[in-house]
Design a protein around this nucleic acid. Structure first.
Length: 734
RNA sequence: UGACCCGUGGUCGAAUUGGCAAGACGUCGGGUUCUGACCCCGAAGGUUCUAGGUUCGAGUCCUAGCGGGUCAACCA
């Protein structure tokens, strides 16, 4: 069972409350590029939520802008979603609904909710105002609706030039939310659409088309990323003013960001077009096509999306988390092989060159079958990085006098490490313990190898991160932080069994990493390998450890002097209100008026202020002030606990009447006699023996739990102070 | 600068809606091992951004401040 998040809860609530009987979601990409890992999160959320609640999801191409979109991307998108493992109930297009959208545009015009505007793009921008200054109305804002309708039809019929007219919603040019300042709904684009051809020369904007598409598809939960938060008001406006068959609701969550990864479609396109990568499916790309090519399985992507969770806070996920998830996915499924990336010759001096046997070895550790044969001989190739002429401390691989296991073969003793004039290792000489194969002989370390006579040279790409910095998206020019040679194309020497792997096969090159036989470049008998991800390296030589110490700089918290009290607040403070309450009153005139009325009716200023701010603010039509004054007095004299006071208030709001009658009707007179409270305490303590002992064992945080339970059990009547005192005595006793 | 959204161990994130600050990844230590992988055990790591307020009780509610983000395309 996966961890819950706020969207799951929302959907669950809607189902429980009967607001919906089924869940329908949609994944609405614009077909103007390829899907990336950020979209994967959206896909997992939309399809995942629907699947969890036995609902359905449509895959919708959001194709409202014919100048940017292209059919060629549609197939790629559909393929990627399917690859991730999700099934759509229907593949739809925003353009499917162009007729309805247009009809409802006329509907809006006829009801005075939209008008045709002839401002130029620049004029519209200028009159929209800014975030601080309101916009000014278009001269066409109040023209007769019939005139707008005629103009709209003229636009539709191609009688108006591009840029000469738009259909605008008539909402509020002074709205704080800029999206509401009479946003364009339709613009003229005299270009063919990839699906509707030349049928239309006007096209709906996203903010208009999206809610209609949702409504027409019966979407219950329209899930999108946080940057559409401001658009929700417009979404709701469209739903409100069009004759929609149902009313979907939009909910936003934070988009995915990953370290060392660039997610912008536009810049991804630049990488491709400027040939910094080999294509959309370059194994370094964060596109789904790229991950697939690199050998990452959809299971890993889905697990990753589950691990990062869903919330509304901005985030930057460690690139390590993605790599760890990929390893976890491949670990149990990838068969093991031996391959050497940077070979150096090792000679087993007590092994005759003519003797070239094959040793059978299992493909998985801990599993005896299946197996493959690994050729052996006098001359082997081992990893250069596994050899040292003079080892550092903690190095337990090949160095003079070291005893090392050759994986699946013998334990050898290193006799000599030969180097050339530059100190570069040229040859390693060893003596094998001929009785050690398959025997429990201890060695300092284990090393992978291939027999020189049987080694197969294979192309491999030691794929590395594309960028050298964690936030390439923050760079003025991402090109300056591209890692050179990140594709890492090289030749590796592998055991013969590797050559037989078909394209798409995963393998672990032991001690090197997880690889996949490239689906494109591999040929039968000659696979080309991509490194999916390197193995985790837990080695910790002293030098590396020092290098690893994180340099975290915590910015000093700025100390701000408290701002001056507004005059209104100062007056309240002078009369006894607390500082915070006074500020709150100054902040909201309605609340302040309410508090003042209470004081006029005879309530103490402090209590009146507190009640107005903390309780009455949520009450639309409170009881008469005289009643409230009594209500406050009952709290002051201890008749009513704070908790009970709210219940009484609810009762007064609903039924009216006298405070004391309400208290009696509800039975909420506060219990202050310890003898009356004690039974509740005993009940609670008796019901939770485990927690009682936990508390006595030191988990004192449970105290609040006990108090809460007792008060709840008493129906809110028990005096908290009495309860606390009794519990303390009981728990500290014995 | 205005409105809105958001601040919980290094990272991502739970917290039964006001009552015991989960979990994962990472880090550190140990065990196991014919992969320095995997696996197993253990530990550290928190003033829940800050300051006030309400409350018996605040990560949760209120106010202010600080910090981050979004919005001012006839893009989506």
């Amino acid at each position: 069972m996966s961890a819950s998040h706020f969207i799951r809860q929302l959907v669950d609530d809607d189902l429980r409350s009967g607001r919906h009987t089924q869940v329908r979601t949609r994944f609405p990409p614009e077909p103007n590029g390829h899907l990336h890992i950020g979209h994967a999160k959206a896909i997992c959320i939309n399809f995942g939520i629907a699947a969890e609640f036995s609902g359905t999801t449509t895959l919708r191409m959001d194709d409202t802008n014919p100048t940017k979109e292209d059919t060629s991307y549609v197939d790629g998108i559909a393929r990627d979603v399917a690859w991730l493992g999700f099934e759509w109930v229907a593949l739809t297009h925003a353009s499917d609904a162009f007729d309805t959208m247009y009809a409802w545009a006329e509907h809006l015009v006829e009801h005075g909710h939209a008008y045709v505007c002839h401002q130029t793009e620049d004029e519209m921008r200028a009159t929209r105002g800014t975030v601080t200054v309101p916009g000014t109305a278009s001269p066409w804002r109040d023209r007769p609706w019939a005139e707008s309708l005629t103009e709209l039809r003229a636009m539709r019929d191609g009688l108006r030039a591009e840029g000469s007219a738009t259909l605008r919603a008539r909402i509020d040019m002074a709205a704080h939310n800029m999206k509401l300042r009479d946003p364009p709904l339709y613009r003229i684009r005299k270009v063919d659409h990839h699906r509707t051809g030349d049928r239309w020369c006007i096209y709906p904007m996203y903010d208009y088309a999206h809610p209609i598409s949702d409504a027409l598809e019966g979407i219950t939960h329209s899930l999108c990323t946080l940057e559409f938060d401001n658009n929700r008001a417009l979404y709701d406006w469209v739903i409100e003013h069009c004759p929609v068959p149902c009313r979907p609701r939009q909910t936003e969550y934070a988009r995915l960001n990953i370290g060392f990864t660039m997610m912008s479609k536009r810049r991804l396109l630049a990488l491709v077009e400027e040939k910094h990568v080999t294509g959309w499916d370059d194994p370094r790309m964060p596109t789904l096509a790229g991950f697939r090519r690199r050998g990452v399985r959809p299971e890993a992507i889905r697990a990753f999306c589950e691990r990062v969770g869903v919330a509304r806070a901005d985030n930057l996920v460690d690139a390590d988390l993605l790599e760890a998830t990929i390893r976890d996915d491949l670990e149990p499924i990838a068969p093991r092989y031996l391959a050497v990336v940077d070979p150096v010759v090792l000679e087993v001096t007590n092994w005759p060159d003519a003797d070239r046997p094959s040793f059978s070895a299992p493909l998985w550790p801990d599993k005896p079958e299946p197996r493959r044969d690994v050729p052996f001989g006098r001359r082997l190739l081992v990893e250069r990085s596994d050899v040292r002429a003079t080892p550092e401390v903690g190095f337990h691989r090949l160095s003079p006098r070291a005893v090392v296991r050759l994986r699946h073969a013998f334990v050898v003793t290193c006799d000599a490490v030969e180097t050339d004039a530059d100190g570069r290792i040229t040859r390693v000489l060893c003596t094998a313990d001929l009785a050690s194969r398959g025997a429990p002989v201890k060695a300092k370390g284990t090393v992978h190898w291939v027999a020189e006579h049987a080694a197969v040279a294979m192309r491999a790409r030691l794929v590395e991160r594309l960028f050298t910095v964690e936030r390439p998206d923050l760079e003025e020019d991402f090109r300056s932080v591209l890692r050179p040679l990140s594709l890492g194309e090289t030749t590796v020497m592998g055991e013969p069994a590797l050559a037989a792997l078909p394209a798409g096969s995963h393998a672990q090159f032991e001690r090197v990493g997880f690889f996949v036989a490239d689906a494109v470049d591999s040929t039968p008998g000659a696979p080309v390998f991509n490194r999916v991800v390197a193995l985790r390296d837990n080695s910790r030589p002293a030098a590396a450890a020092a290098e690893r110490t994180p340099a975290t700089t915590t910015p000093a918290a700025p100390v701000a002097p408290p701002p001056p009290l507004p005059p209104v607040a100062a007056a309240w403070v002078a009369n006894g209100a607390t500082d915070g309450d006074a500020r709150a009153l100054a902040h909201d005139a309605t609340t302040e008026a309410r508090a003042r009325a209470l004081v006029a009716a005879g309530a103490p200023a402090r209590a009146a202020a507190a009640a107005a701010v903390h309780v009455l603010a949520d009450v639309p039509s409170p009881p008469p002030n005289a009643t409230l004054v009594t209500w406050l007095a009952r709290q002051a004299d201890g008749t009513l606990s704070a908790r009970a006071a709210r219940a009484v208030l609810d009762h007064l709001v609903a039924k009216g009447g006298d405070v004391d009658d309400a208290i009696d009707a509800l039975g909420l007179r506060q219990l202050r006699d310890p003898a009356a409270v004690m039974p509740f305490v005993a009940d609670v303590l008796g019901a939770h023996p485990d927690r009682v002992s936990a508390y006595r064992g030191g988990k004192t945080g449970l105290f609040g739990f006990f108090v809460g339970q007792v008060i709840a059990r008493s129906g809110g009547r028990a005096d908290p102070a009495v309860v606390a005192d009794l519990i303390k005595r009981q728990l500290d006793a014995s």
